[in-house]
Design a protein around this nucleic acid. Structure first.
Lengths: 99, 99
DNA sequence: TAATGATATTATTATATCGATATATTTGGC
DNA sequence: GCCAAATATATCGATATAATAATATCATTA
């Protein structure tokens, strides 16, 4: 990776580095959801969800399609889901995370 | 992942989400380096490197061993290197990154 | 066309991060 | 004990991010 590439990669990582945004990705791993479903399931405000989704879309982590008055969210790139297993193990092995 | 876990996972991701810190991980993938080697290779200041290494160590991404007056840095968890391939592809496929 | 449900935007405040500079600490050799 | 090399810490202004509340937009339906 060249320097310029690392700057962009850092932005993608930053977009994932937030508990709500990680929650969104995790839920969407299971399939499409509307914006309302997402913020209800994650217990955050509608405004918060809208802002976090914007960040995820900018980095092309989440895709949104419109259907009438609702918007359906889905993952752009399921490849990143590997990261969750990896992280899961890291927290337990290196950061003593207890279930 | 439960909510508490996502907060910690977000901290780990944040620790990676910086061009210099990504550079460190990339270089260390190739093997151990001293602090001086790292900041020279990445072209940043000694102070900057020391600060960034601290963040990487806190999240147990990098390990440091002392030998005399120098410190040798290495990766704690090579598992995260997968992320680089993944990111490489994401930048090209979804964010139109040109080499 | 007015009301309603779904979502987005804006503004604000608090807090965190960045990058630079200056200074401190530690260690080994003399 | 003193010096130099290697590394760490403290501070500071600038910028970015977070969280919340208030308001706006947009599409549907009555």
């Amino acid at each position: 990776m060249v320097c310029e590439e690392r700057i962009i990669a850092a932005d993608v990582l930053k977009a994932m580095a937030h508990p709500v945004r990680l929650g969104v990705i995790e839920i969407l791993a299971d399939g499409e959801r509307t914006v309302t479903q997402l913020y209800e399931e994650l217990g955050c405000s509608q405004s918060m969800m809208s802002q976090q989704l914007k960040i995820l879309c900018q980095q092309k982590l989440v895709d949104i399609r419109k259907e009438g008055t609702q918007k359906y969210c889905s993952l752009c790139n399921r490849d990143f889901l590997k990261l969750f297993d990896c992280m899961h193990r890291h927290l337990r092995r290196f950061l003593n995370f207890q279930d």
